[in-house]
Amino acid sequence: MANFVLANSGHNRDDEASKFGMWLFLFTELLLFGGLFLVYTIYRYLNSEAFLHASYELNVIMGTVNTVVLLTSSLTVALSITALQKGHVKLTMWLLVATILFALTFLVIKYFEWSAKFEHGLFPGMDHYEHLPAGEKMFFFLYFFMTGLHGLHVIVGGVLLGFVMRDIKKKKTTPDNYVYLENGGLYWHLVDIIWIFLFPLFYLIH
């Protein structure tokens, strides 16, 4: 006999469920970074002088430019969703290309920032770093750890949006079925919002 299939099947398309799942996943990402924010807070409290001193080493201009870049990329990804909803597939693609380009720009700027720190020997294990006071060591370690993990998320987010583009091209993600793009966008906003917290914590608090 033929298989009986239920109306409320787990294999049905359910955009609500997909978005719900994505939001739950974003919670876990926030908590992942939450552990690091906690460590940052405690060591900032214990070594406030050293953290202050070390933070002058960071390049505020590059940080600011990167913040603007990421915020703009969040705008383009949000626009791409609206564009797809309204049926402008080509525009969607261009907006996604722009988003990924912004992501790359962010990474390139980050690369130059990190290289400058490497040149100054500020990475754990390097000469200059080893002679820093304990508190400043902690600052730079957390800086590399947290911005590094964030950078990893930028890469993952960019790749994810690349997969979304492929899906749009294959007509799997369409003006009638765009939850994949929405979820990619949600993830991208997460990448953005974590940076919004990292930026002041490392660059701005003086």
């Binding site: 876990t28 908590l31 939450g34 552990g35 460590v39 993990l149």
Partner: peptide, 14 residues
């Protein structure tokens, strides 16, 4: 599972 596990994840990475 959802709200506690990420904390150990990051701790283990540390």
């Amino acid at each position: 599972q959802l709200l506690a596990t990420p904390v150990i994840g990051i701790t283990l990475l540390m």
